[in-house]
Simulated scan of single mutants.
Amino acid sequence: MRLRPVTDSDLPALDLLNRAAVPNVNDVGVEGLKHLAAQAAFFRLAEDETGPLGFLLAMTPEADYDSPNFLWFKKRYPDFCYIDRVVVAESARRLGVGSALYQAVIDFSTGRAPVLTCEVNLQPANLGSLAFHERFGFRQAGTQDTENGKKTVSLMIRPL
């Protein structure tokens, strides 16, 4: 497995991975991923000889982004690195892909921001993701209902 920066030519394949992960991430389509890529401070792809295994996209407060979760952090923290989405292919789960992506974003963010932030779904529950983030030292800083009450998220931070 290797990690590398995402290019525009990767976006159709990453869109397929992203769609397969709904409702744990929002479906944004290729154009949405292109917009997010333009705002990203960190956008890495994990791949092997078979193709993409997963990706992680993160941004800093300067991003032009209106996600309610991003804005929640922006209102409370003057500086942070926000993990907007992490997706790992079903076939690549439990193989260290997520851990490699998280270690890469931690390394990238250390010295750039005092905290790494993200959200994890509480409703619909994503217990595997919650446990994963807790193992990486994240703790809940708050909760928020989104999508007109269809989702509740745990807003999490990890000091760097």
Rank of each mutant, 00 (worst) to 15 (best):
Q103D: 13
V115N: 12
D64K: 12
L71M: 13
R112T: 03
A63I: 02
R93K: 07
F73W: 06
L130Y: 08
V87R: 14
A113E: 01
K75Y: 05
L95P: 00
G111F: 07
P124H: 06
N121K: 03
L155W: 11
M156S: 13
S99V: 04
N148T: 05
N121Y: 08
A100N: 05
T146V: 14
A104K: 11
K75P: 00
E62W: 10
A125Y: 04
L127G: 06
G96S: 11
P61A: 10
N148S: 12
M156T: 03
A125K: 02
D64P: 01
G137Q: 11
L155S: 09
P78G: 14
A131Q: 14
P124E: 00
L127T: 15
R135S: 10
I106H: 07
R135I: 00
S67M: 05
F80Y: 07
G128W: 13
L130N: 01
D64H: 09
R112W: 07
R85W: 12
M156R: 14
G111K: 07
Q123N: 10
A92Y: 09
P124V: 08
E134S: 03
D107S: 10
W72A: 05
S109M: 02
V105N: 14
Q123M: 05
V87P: 11
A89D: 14
Q144S: 14
V105D: 15
D79S: 15
L95Y: 09
K75I: 00
R112G: 03
P61F: 07
S67P: 00
D84P: 06
E119T: 12
F80H: 06
E119G: 09
W72E: 09
A92G: 06
A104C: 10
S109C: 12
T60M: 15
K74T: 13
V153C: 04
V115Q: 13
G149K: 01
T146H: 11
A113H: 11
I157P: 04
A104L: 09
S154P: 01
L127S: 12
Y82K: 04
G111M: 07
Q144V: 09
V115P: 04
P114S: 04
F136T: 10
R93I: 01
L130V: 00
N148A: 14
L130C: 00
T117I: 04
T110I: 00
G111V: 02
A63R: 13
G96Y: 06
N69G: 04
V97R: 10
S154K: 09
S67V: 07
D84S: 03
I83S: 05
H133R: 14
Y77L: 15
S154M: 05
Q144F: 09
Q140N: 05
H133V: 06
W72L: 03
K151A: 02
T60Q: 15
F108E: 05
L127K: 14
V120W: 09
K151P: 00
R112A: 03
S109K: 02
S129D: 08
R76I: 01
I83T: 13
I106C: 11
F136K: 02
Q103V: 01
S67W: 06
V86F: 08
G128K: 11
S154Q: 04
Y77F: 15
Q144D: 03
L155Y: 05
C118E: 04
Y102M: 14
E147M: 01
R139M: 04
L127R: 15
R135Q: 11
K75L: 01
T110L: 05
